[in-house]
C-alpha cells in the first residue's frame, strides 16, 4: 500500500438525532479540526444523516490486536445471562 500523502487522517462519528449515540461513519483527511469537521459534514451528512459530528485524529485511536481476540472476546461466548433478554421491555421505551 502506498503512503498516504493527503494530510492527516481523522475518524468521523455522526449523531443521527439529538440524544442518540454517535456512530462511526468513516474517515476524512484534514490538516486541522475545523477542516476535519467541514470535510466530514460535506461527505457524511449530505443526505441529512446527522445533527452533530465528532472528529478524532485517527492517531489517537487505540485498537485491539487481532491476536488478542481469543483472550478479549471468547470468554463472553457462554455468558448468556449477561444478555438483558430476560426482562420485559417497558411500554414506550425505544432507546434501550
Amino acid at each position: 500500500m502506498s503512503t498516504d500523502t493527503q494530510l492527516d487522517l481523522w475518524e468521523v462519528f455522526i449523531q443521527s438525532r439529538p440524544g442518540s449515540h454517535y456512530t462511526h461513519a468513516g474517515s476524512v483527511h484534514a490538516s486541522d479540526n475545523q477542516m476535519a469537521l467541514q470535510n466530514a459534514r460535506d461527505i457524511y451528512t449530505r443526505r441529512n444523516e446527522g445533527t452533530s459530528i465528532w472528529v478524532v485524529p485517527a492517531k489517537y485511536v487505540s485498537a485491539s490486536n487481532a491476536e488478542d481476540a481469543g483472550m478479549f472476546f471468547d470468554p463472553s461466548n457462554d455468558k448468556m445471562y449477561r444478555h438483558p433478554t430476560f426482562y420485559v421491555m417497558p411500554e414506550g421505551a425505544k432507546q434501550i
Binding site: Q6, H29, A30, N39, D42, I43
Partner: peptide, 11 residues
C-alpha cells in the same frame, strides 16, 4: 486538490 475538497466545492 484532495477528494474531500472536491466534494466540498461541488457541494
Amino acid at each position: 486538490p484532495i477528494l474531500e475538497e472536491d466534494l466540498a466545492l461541488t457541494n
